[in-house]
């Protein structure tokens, strides 16, 4: 199955306002060549968080195939932001900037996934909003999303799975949220293999 991952970063989060200036943080997240690119960038903040989101998206995609150590700096993002590598695996990558939102999508096959990002309405639960956005883009109709507990995973849950009328749909999906934004990516093969 094609694997997809996505990540959003809210650039207006005050907590990350100066992070690009902190060498140790940049060194923890970026490999040597990426550090040089951030240091020489005309917009180091945007580049750092584009790289960060790309690495998060790639990890989400690859970790569905088996456990792997998540060390941001081991995921190497191409200079053109079109691919991201982890050891010998290379994923396709797309990074979009929508105002103050960075949205990265990574996938394991030639055909790009469908994806989207949306501003979160105040007071709305971010996880619920990301699920609602994905379901809406896939056409609704009996679709639900659930995550099963997965001890040992980074947040205690396995990846989100798509169900239609209670039956799991063999279509890989990814959800994300940060600050005022939610995003998703989904395998665009379209064939729902039950």
């Amino acid at each position: 199955m094609r694997r997809v991952g996505n990540d959003v970063v809210d650039l207006e989060d005050p907590a990350i306002a100066q992070t690009h200036l902190r060498e140790r943080f940049v060194a923890r997240v970026c490999c040597e060549s990426e550090r040089a690119r951030v240091a020489g960038s005309s917009d180091p903040k945007l580049l750092l968080w584009s790289l960060f989101a790309a690495k998060e998206a790639a990890f989400k995609a690859l970790s569905k195939s088996g456990p792997l150590v998540f060390a941001h700096r081991r995921f190497v993002v191409a200079e053109d932001l079109r691919s991201v590598s982890y050891l010998k695996q290379v994923l396709w990558l797309r990074v979009d900037v929508h105002g103050s939102c960075v949205h990265a999508v990574a996938w394991t096959d030639d055909e790009p996934p469908i994806f989207g990002v949306e501003k979160l309405e105040p007071g709305v639960d971010a996880s619920a909003a990301a699920r609602a956005l994905l379901i809406q883009r896939l056409g609704g109709g009996g679709l639900t999303i659930a995550r099963e507990p997965q001890p040992g995973s980074w947040n205690g849950y396995g990846p989100p799975k798509l169900f239609r009328d209670g039956v799991e749909v063999n279509l890989d999906i990814s959800l994300s949220h940060d600050g005022r934004f939610v995003g998703f990516a989904a395998d665009s093969s379209g064939a729902e293999k039950r």
Binding site: T19, R24, F25, F52, D178
Partner: peptide
């Protein structure tokens, strides 16, 4: 805590 903040916590 999100993953970016987790990097800060490790540091």
């Amino acid at each position: 805590v999100n993953s970016a903040r987790l990097v800060d916590i490790v540091l």
